[in-house]
């Protein structure tokens, strides 16, 4: 996307520069065909159609499609803290730390207790908002065990800059231990 944008930008700049070289007046009719219809209409349409198709395909891949090994967790934003619940361990609730298994798809049900927040773990997925009265579901997946930084990405007043949380992705063994309440 960046390379394409760079090419288009370069093209426009070259065309601008070339306008300054001395030339004879060429009249309107041919110019309209080249500039307006060719470069103005046809060129963007082709580029955009390709880009849009690409975006839709990628978007499709990020959807929370049904799958057997999906793990379901809940994330509730509340001014200055996130609390997380786990479908597999109903009584378990963690504060500001979300535990997930690595290499398995995880569906996060995002809700809020007060104002609008946004759940964002940049390395695992895009962001999705927590809207009062609604539940939004985000599919995340960590390829490897480890610790991932997450932030709340919707302005929520003072304290917004420190409004963050951590996601810990466990390997299969540790995840079982977590489910058995061995890990705090």
């Amino acid at each position: 996307m960046l390379a394409g944008a760079g090419l288009i930008f370069g093209l426009v700049m070259v065309l601008l520069l070339l306008a300054f070289r001395p030339r004879a007046d060429t009249g309107d009719a041919g110019n309209v065909r080249v500039w307006v219809i060719g470069l103005g209409l046809a060129f963007p349409m082709v580029v955009l159609a390709a880009l849009l198709a690409y975006g839709l395909v990628i978007g499709e891949r990020l959807l929370p499609l049904a799958s057997d090994d999906v793990v379901r967790v809940g994330a509730q934003g509340q001014l200055s803290t996130w609390s997380f619940t786990y479908a597999d361990v109903p009584n378990r609730r963690t504060q500001d730390v979300l535990h997930i298994p690595a290499a398995r798809p995880v569906d996060v049900s995002i809700t809020t207790a007060d104002v609008i927040h946004s759940f964002w773990v940049p390395r695992l997925a895009g962001k999705l908002d927590a809207i009062p009265g609604r539940t939004n579901i985000l599919r995340i997946e960590a390829d490897f065990p480890g610790t991932y930084h997450g932030v709340s990405a919707e302005f929520s007043g003072t304290g917004y800059d420190h409004f963050s949380f951590t996601v810990i992705a466990h390997d299969a063994e540790d995840w079982d231990a977590f489910l058995d309440e061995d890990i705090e």
Binding site: V12, L15, L16, L18, A19, F20, R23, D25, T26, G27, D28, N31, V32, V34, W35, V36, L39, G40, L41, F43, P44, M45, L48, L51, L52, G55, L56, G59
Partner: peptide, 24 residues
């Protein structure tokens, strides 16, 4: 998303018509 990319088309028409004006 489609509508948002489509809006680049009339913008493109204007930009290139202006550059064409400069060439003319």
């Amino acid at each position: 998303s489609a509508a948002s990319t489509l809006v680049a088309v009339p913008t493109g028409v204007q930009i290139f018509a202006w550059i064409g004006t400069m060439w003319k």
